[in-house]
Amino acid sequence: MAFDFLVENIAQQKQRARYRVRQCVAEQNGRHVKINDVTYLNFSSNDYLGLNHHPEINQALLEGAERFGTCASGSSLITGYSYAHQALENEICDWLNQPKCLLFASGFSANSALMQALGHKSCQLYLDKLSHASLIDGALSSEAKVKRFLHNDITQLERFIVQSQSAANSDINSIDDEINRVIVSEGVFSMDGDQADIANLSKIAQQYQALFYVDDAHSIGVVGDKGQGSSSMANVDVVMATFGKSIATSGAFVACDENLAEYLVNFSRHYIYSTAISPALAWATKKSIELIQTQHWRREKITELSHLLESKLSEKVQLIKNASSIHAIVIGDEMATLDVCQKLRDRGIWLSAIRPPTVPNNSSRLRVTVTSSHEIKDINYLADCINEVIE
């Protein structure tokens, strides 16, 4: 029978406890989620700053829809680039101290676009081993040479660069060819919640004249005195971040220098052939970023609640310690992780079981996200329940 592999592969997923299904959410905010008529304490949301449903952002969305419409009605190079988009780009440039900014429909699209654009045959891309799938896919589909260094292993990264430099110098055919290097990392890694060593990565990039690219999807809004993410720690040449997490809207941006922005406008298929994001959403996103820069208490509360969670968990709980909103509790086996997840749901806590291939084999986990919408009693209850169900 044609396409037997569809049924066979799904059956294998079920057998390996890696089968995935969607859940229809009736209502949600940073603290609660309602699914199948049951309301749970929500610790799976990426609404880190609790800005979803914020009245000023909702009002800006309405204003944007009335003024610019809900649809861009074309790509950015036809008639889709409106004043709302331009105003948002300018806001991001000022926020991150970058010369130019371009908007994309999603973080996956932006990462893929940038890896393909920077993946010229003269380039070498160095990716952290735990880089997002969109970065890996984009890099491997490019013409560049790709090396993946061990997670946060700056020593290995530098060794790879030196080795490539030596190889180029010894190759008589490549002496006149310029090697363009790009160092790629996430600011905060989505599954472990740990941070990259942005300062040292930036130093290495400068030392070897490499471009430093950071996927800041999980640190924008949360890290930095004004939520600037990795840009608050050191010089970052190219910043990508999404709007659908702490910024609480939808879409993504790339902030960079004028040359790269001009190149993307002319050669990035993702940018050229995609309809621009909704101008109403762009207007709402601008308002959200204004709030993020001034409402410092949201970041401070995440830090406070994260420290509380760490202090309340039993020593038998394998917590990956970090300073972000994301707290990974490693269980290991897929079935055991699903079992713990269900026991927590029975106690009114919504957490997702993260399993391979999203994480390495034997490292299935609960991915706990703490938001500024949570309360101290929520964290205490979560810790008590986790301590109870993990044996």
Rank of each mutant, 00 (worst) to 15 (best):
Val236Leu: 05
Val236Ile: 04
Val238Asp: 02
Ala241Met: 11
Ala241Glu: 01
Thr242Val: 14
Phe243Thr: 10
Gly244Ala: 12
Gly244Lys: 03
Gly244Met: 03
Ser246Gly: 03
Ser246Asn: 05
Ser250Glu: 15
Ser250Pro: 03
Ala252Gln: 08
Ala252Trp: 04
Val254Ile: 15
Asp257Glu: 14
Leu260Asp: 07
Leu260Glu: 08
Ala261Leu: 03
Ala261Tyr: 03
Glu262Leu: 14
Tyr263Trp: 11
Val265Phe: 00
Arg269Ser: 15
His270Pro: 08
Tyr271Gly: 05
Tyr273Arg: 12
Ser274Pro: 09
Ser274Lys: 15
Thr275Arg: 14
Thr275Asn: 15
Ala276Asp: 13
Ser278Gln: 12
Trp283Glu: 06
Ile289Gln: 09
Leu291Thr: 02
Leu291Met: 07
Leu291Tyr: 05
Ile292Gly: 00
Gln295Phe: 08
His296Tyr: 07
Trp297Phe: 10
Trp297Leu: 03
Arg298Ile: 01
Ile302Lys: 06
Ser306Asn: 14
His307Lys: 12
His307Glu: 13
Leu308Lys: 12
Glu310His: 11
Ser311Val: 00
Ser311Gln: 09
Lys312Ser: 02
Ser314Val: 07
Ser314Met: 03
Glu315Asp: 15
Val317Asn: 05
Ile320Leu: 12
His327Arg: 13
Ala328Cys: 02
Ile329Ser: 02
Ile329Gly: 02
Asp333Ala: 15
Ala336His: 05
Cys341Val: 04
Leu344Trp: 01
Arg345Tyr: 00
Arg347Glu: 15
Trp350Gln: 10
Trp350Leu: 10
Arg355Thr: 14
Pro356Arg: 06
Asn361Trp: 10
Asn361Asp: 14
Asn361Ile: 10
Asn362Ser: 09
